[in-house]
Amino acid sequence: MTATTLVAAVGNRSCFKNGRQFTAWPGLGPRQRSSGGKSRLFGIGKRGGRYLRTLMIHGARAVLGKAHGKKDPRSQWISRMRERRHPNIVAVALANKNARVVWPILSRGESYRPAETVLPD
Rank of each mutant, 00 (worst) to 15 (best):
G65N: 14
G45T: 12
E83C: 06
S34M: 07
L55S: 09
M81P: 00
Q21A: 12
R85M: 15
P87C: 10
A24R: 02
L55N: 07
K38R: 15
P30Q: 09
K38S: 11
M56C: 13
R61I: 02
S35R: 11
A60W: 01
P87N: 14
L64Q: 12
R20Q: 11
G37R: 14
Q76G: 05
M81S: 03
P26Y: 03
G45L: 05
L52K: 07
V92F: 06
S79V: 01
R40D: 07
H68V: 10
G69H: 08
R50A: 14
F22E: 01
G48Q: 04
K17Q: 04
K46Q: 12
K66Y: 06
G45Q: 07
R82K: 15
R50E: 08
G48P: 01
G36T: 07
H86G: 07
C15E: 11
V92D: 07
G36R: 08
R80P: 00
F22G: 03
W25D: 00
G29C: 09
Y51I: 08
S34C: 10
L64S: 10
I44D: 02
P30T: 08
G45W: 01
K46D: 04
M56L: 15
K70L: 13
L55H: 09
S35K: 10
A91I: 08
W77M: 02
Q21H: 11
G43M: 06
Q21C: 05
L28A: 08
G36Y: 04
R61V: 03
R53S: 05
W25Q: 01
P87D: 13
T54L: 08
R74L: 15
I78K: 04
G19V: 00
R20T: 05
G27R: 01
R61T: 05
I57H: 06
K38Q: 14
K38W: 10
S75A: 13
I89P: 01
S79K: 12
A60Y: 02
R61G: 05
G27V: 00
